[in-house]
């Protein structure tokens, strides 16, 4: 199964590649065969894609980030596929407040 180079992402914990209808094309790491997470993220990204970022609709969604405690899910869309990467959340700057 092709990993689409998703396991080379820094702080990688797991990845998912989904078809447009939410079917899992490829998966690995902690997200291997995790269909329930895939379904939730699929719904989220479909909703996010409909949100206009600028009024003239020139800018489109590039990446959606979901932070849960010390884990971050990053979702992006490319070639009508949904790419999900689960990473350890290591913010690069200290908390300012």
């Amino acid at each position: 199964m092709a990993t689409y180079g998703m396991d080379r992402v820094p702080d990688y914990l797991g990845y998912l590649v989904l078809a447009e209808d939410g079917a899992v094309i490829s998966s690995g790491g902690e997200l291997e065969n995790d269909e329930s997470t895939a379904n939730k993220l699929n719904k989220l990204i479909h909703t996010a894609c409909r949100i206009p970022i600028t009024p003239d609709k020139k800018d489109v969604l590039r990446r959606m980030s979901i932070v849960v405690d010390d884990v971050i899910f990053m979702v992006t869309v490319s070639q009508h596929k949904i790419f999900v990467s689960k990473r350890q959340y290591n913010p690069q700057e200290p908390v300012s407040t």
């Binding site: 992402v9 894609c49 409909r50 590039r62 992006t76 869309v77 009508h80 790419f83």
Partner: peptide, 21 residues
């Protein structure tokens, strides 16, 4: 199907540093 074409290199986008605190 209502997903846009999206970006060209998903690996690059996902490898970028995460959103800051």
């Amino acid at each position: 199907p209502n997903l846009p074409n999206g970006i060209t290199s998903p690996q690059m986008t996902l490898s970028a540093p995460p959103v800051s605190l």
